[in-house]
Design a binder for these strands. Structure first.
Length: 895
RNA sequence: GGACAGUUGGCGCAGUUGGUAGCGCACCACUUUGACAUAGUGGGGGUCACUGGUUCGAAUCCAGUACUGUCCACCA
């Protein structure tokens, strides 16, 4: 914002823009311009309203996908809009270290170099990850540039920045000292490939075709047996009981007896527990506390042991519970072998096909193994309470509102959060244990135990769940716990825009952490945008190869066209949107249209000095387009207030193409030819175009900056170096003029009528015709006479006759309300064709008449409908009758 | 199993308080007129998923059904 504005743009030759818009060139030029001038860097302007938001930090392993591009565009539209509206804006960008993902990517890379993480050791490995991050970690930020997003680029944050890490450890220690964080030994979700635990939300349940195995457990005494049902027969080695429902008459007598565990010699008891569903399977449930979360609960209730038979890598353990032949074998291999053995032994009663949900690791898609281990947990119930309240009381609003329910459902049934991960890449849990077994949390590496003299302390091996750090994103990026200026000015942030799939994973956690640590909400509104699916309604995924790369689309259609489409998708419509490339083509053509409109307007401004419009001296068309323009501005402003991007986009698109280009520019050509109207027309043409560029800039920053820079501007804009800092246009009530809309509407209808007749009767486009207009209404007649030039030019009429009371024979005509528009065709008329056309019209009119007659014929309608509605129908009938008679008359004339 | 969405011309979608269905693409015809053929002009095409109900009147309100999609959920 430092260089003076270039008023010389006024004199820019219109020839320098060619016919076709070239997005690539313009985007490259302005990207460079913007970054060279550092226009995006944070600039806190005192005494201004504030608008701020934090970009959901993409993973450093990520590439820009459709979701990023959509969300980025929506936020950028708001940021650019607010900036132009005079707000002090902050859009905090940054990236997430993404524990599991990044570790996976780097491990895979090392594997290609034949290096194993373990051989390397923790420290060396982390060094490798940092190297990787240096090289590739900013890829996605570079990709965002192509979209034209106006982040506060000088403030890119990373969840492993020094100040960010401080925030994490501060947060952890507060929770720890207040007793929210605790160590628990229980069943957790375990990924045998990543070798780490996962939170419930990181497990994807997929319906999988499997089997339900019915296995016989013989009683130790007597002949009988109990048959249990399981989907995972290999886990029976860890069984410690068979449970039945206490009220199940079939099995009551067996409770307390012992059964023999197949494949082993162990004997286990039959117990009774309410958890068992009598209707499911056989009503007998095998209890494997170490390998099933529910069984663990049952085991706890009955004081049962929990033998571990599957290890962290998903292999059978080499211990006394597992027969030697299975030692070290993979769980799925053992499943097959166990099934075979059971069949052999005659203990397999039945194998049923069975479809059920199986948990998979979100990152590597390995089947999750419920695993008994020590993990760090965050106690959630109490922390959730205020977070529920702020949403219930609408201090934080979801847009669309329905997503508040998603959030509240989750929060009200919250379970404790497993925050530890057995990874190397991440924030190491800041808990140290001294040689005297004193455990405590420290914000920085301790020199000495907090509880004794010991100076020998060891830190916990685990790292924090990535989401623990992202939960602090909105305030940690602003410097919390330091009271930085940015923090004071911009926090709480105004909005958060994100995808619905992370409402619980991320949004919920930001809310409760902010309430806990900052004592305030993190943002006022949460915008949830739709998910972009493939054209056939499937989820886009890189691994399935059906994902569309937004960078390819930007390359092909231009960033502005893509942004226009994203904005048109908005957040208020469907919760899923199918990707369609032809939509991008539509907006690409729109950009081209705009470009050419700009070329035309700029070419018409010779000798023109920018000046405001005088509402007093305008023509009908001028008044009309100004009315339309200001109506559009009003609607757009309203739409943005409601976050209705779709509506705003449509308003701009329709105004630009239909009203401004298709009608006003054509009319302007007529007016420009008249010396007395030239300057005024230039003024209207220019003022609207210039304002339109500003109105459109938040959605299409590149093309508008380019065109605006070439557009002459009044001194009012001298201080604005770029359109992005110019004020956003507001509607001016002086230009609202409903009458012009009605009047212009009539003229347009007459023009359309003439065009219609011409084409229906094959009048060559090159020939000028004589048009007869018979207007019964004096005002309408006067209006049409006054604006006859528009009709002449736009309908290609050589002469327009308003006085002829009877039509010459062989005239073709149409009606506009009570006005008859006719073209005498004389010898050129095709009688048969005309007759056929008239008969078609007659049939249509009669059909319509019958429909209306039916409505009016309904006695209840006359009685109960509001009088004005009844009158409307009556008027319509009268008009249709009139039309019908005219057609009949016309047909007679042909004979 | 629960919840939330969607179902309107070939395709993608608009339709704010119920009052004769609109847009873009595609399609047909005409037009290279000095902003734009990535264009202009005109035109054809829909009983608004289905079934009931409320109402003088329903794409619009209510109930149910079907299909599609998403999220949540510890039934082996």
């Amino acid at each position: 914002m430092s260089t003076p504005s270039t008023k010389t743009a006024t004199s820019m030759s219109p020839d320098s823009t060619s016919g076709a818009y070239n997005p690539k060139e313009v985007e490259a030029k302005w990207t460079k311009e913007w970054f060279d001038k550092e226009v995006f860097d944070l600039d806190i302007i005192p005494d201004r309203p504030v608008f701020s938001c934090a970009l959901p930090p993409p993973n450093i392993t990520g590439n820009l996908h459709m979701g990023h591009a959509l969300n980025g565009t929506l936020q950028d539209v708001l940021i650019r809009l607010k900036r132009m509206q005079g707000y002090s804006v902050l859009w905090q960008p940054g990236t997430d270290h993404a524990g599991i993902s990044t570790q996976m990517v780097v491990e895979r890379k090392l594997k290609q170099e034949k290096i194993n993480r373990r051989d390397l050791g923790r420290e060396k490995f982390i060094e490798k990850v940092w190297e990787w991050r240096k090289q590739y970690g900013d890829t996605i930020m570079q990709q965002y540039r192509r979209l034209g997003v106006s982040f506060s680029w000088d403030r890119i944050a990373f969840t492993m920045d020094e100040s960010y890490v401080k925030a994490i450890y501060r947060a952890f220690c507060i929770l720890y000292k207040e007793g929210y964080i605790y160590r628990g030994n229980r069943i957790c979700n375990w990924c045998p490939r990543c070798l780490t635990s996962l939170s419930d939300l990181e497990v994807e349940h997929e319906d999988t075709k499997g089997h339900l195995y019915l296995i016989k457990y013989p009683l130790t005494e007597g002949e009988g047996s109990l048959t249990v049902a399981t989907t995972r027969p290999e886990t029976l080695l860890g069984d410690v009981a068979v449970a039945v429902h206490p009220a199940d008459d079939r099995y009551k007598q067996y409770v307390g007896k012992m059964v023999k565990l197949p494949l082993t010699n162990r004997e286990i008891p039959v117990i009774a527990d309410n958890y068992v569903e009598r209707e499911f399977g056989t009503g007998c449930l095998k209890i494997t506390p170490a390998h099933d979360a529910n069984d663990w609960e049952v085991g706890q209730r009955h004081n049962l042991s929990a033998p571990i038979v599957i290890d962290s890598e998903g292999k059978l353990c080499a211990n006394e519970f597992v027969p030697e032949r299975f030692h070290g074998k993979d769980r799925f291999v053992v499943r097959k072998e166990a099934v075979a053995e059971l069949e052999e032994a005659g203990l397999m009663v039945e194998i049923k096909d069975y479809e059920h949900g199986v948990g998979h690791c979100e990152r590597c898609h390995t089947v999750i193994e419920p695993y008994l281990s020590d993990q760090w947990y965050c106690s959630m119930k109490e922390l959730a309470e205020p977070a529920i309240k702020v949403v219930e009381e609408e201090r934080i609003k979801f847009v669309p509102e329905r997503y508040a329910a998603t959030y509240l459902d989750w929060m009200k049934n919250i379970r404790d959060w497993n925050i530890s991960r057995q990874l190397w890449w991440g924030h190491r849990i800041p808990v140290w244990t001294c040689e005297n077994e004193h455990v405590d949390a420290y914000e920085t590496a301790p020199e000495q135990c907090s509880k004794c003299d010991s100076k020998t302390l060891t830190q916990d091996e685990d790292v924090l769940d990535t989401w623990f750090s992202s939960a602090l994103w909105p305030f940690a990026t602003l410097g919390w716990p330091e009271e930085t200026r940015e923090f004071k000015v911009f926090y709480p942030t105004t909005i958060l825009s994100t995808a619905r799939e992370i409402i619980n994973l991320w949004v919920a956690r930001m809310i409760f952490t902010s309430l806990k640590f900052v004592k305030t909400i993190p943002f006022k509104e949460v915008l949830i945008h739709p998910v972009i699916q493939t054209p056939d309604g499937k989820r886009m995924s890189k691994s399935k190869g059906n994902a569309v790369d937004p960078l390819d689309m930007i390359e092909k259609y231009g960033a502005d066209a893509n942004r226009f489409w994203f904005a048109s998708v908005g957040i208020k419509g469907d919760q899923d949107v199918r990707f369609r490339e032809d939509r991008l083509d539509e907006y690409k053509r729109f950009a081209n249209k705009l470009w050419n409109a700009g070329r035309f307007v700029l070419s018409q401004l010779e000798g023109y000095t920018p000046a405001p419009i005088d509402p007093q001296t305008l023509t009908l068309a001028d008044r009309w387009i100004l009315h339309r323009f200001n109506t559009m501005l009003k609607n757009v402003g309203h739409a943005y207030n409601e976050y209705d991007f779709h509506d705003a986009t449509r308003e701009i698109y329709d105004f630009t193409w239909d009203h401004y280009c298709d009608w006003y520019i054509e009319i302007a050509k007529i007016q420009m030819a008249k010396p007395e109207l030239k300057e005024q027309t230039q003024r209207v043409l220019h003022n609207i175009f210039e304002g339109l560029m500003r109105a459109m800039h938040p959605t299409a920053p590149f093309i508008t900056d380019e065109l605006w820079s070439r557009t002459p501007k009044s001194e009012l804009f001298d201080n604005y170096d770029s359109i992005m800092f110019a004020p956003y246009p507001r509607d001016d009530e002086r230009f609202f003029n409903e009458q012009s809309d009605a009047e212009m509407g009539l003229i347009m209808k007459v023009i359309r009528s003439v065009r219609n007749i011409r084409q229906t009767f094959n009048v060559p486009a090159s020939s000028e015709v004589e048009v007869i207009v018979q207007a019964e209404n004096a005002d309408e007649k006067k209006l049409l006479e006054a604006n006859v030039d528009y009709v002449k030019r736009l309908a290609k009429a050589g002469k327009v006759d308003f006085e002829l009371s009877t039509l010459p024979p062989r005239s073709a005509w149409d009606k506009v309300g009570s006005i008859r528009v006719a073209i005498p065709l004389g010898s050129t008329i095709d009688i048969e064709k005309t007759r056929e056309k008239l008969k078609q019209q007659l049939a249509a009119t009669e059909k319509e008449l019958a429909k209306q007659a039916q409505i009016i014929g309904n006695l209840d309608f006359a009685k109960k409908a509001p009088p004005e509605k009844v009158q409307i129908i009556k008027d319509q009938i009268a008009e249709l009758e009139h039309k019908k008679n005219s057609i009949i008359e016309q047909l007679k004339m042909l004979d």
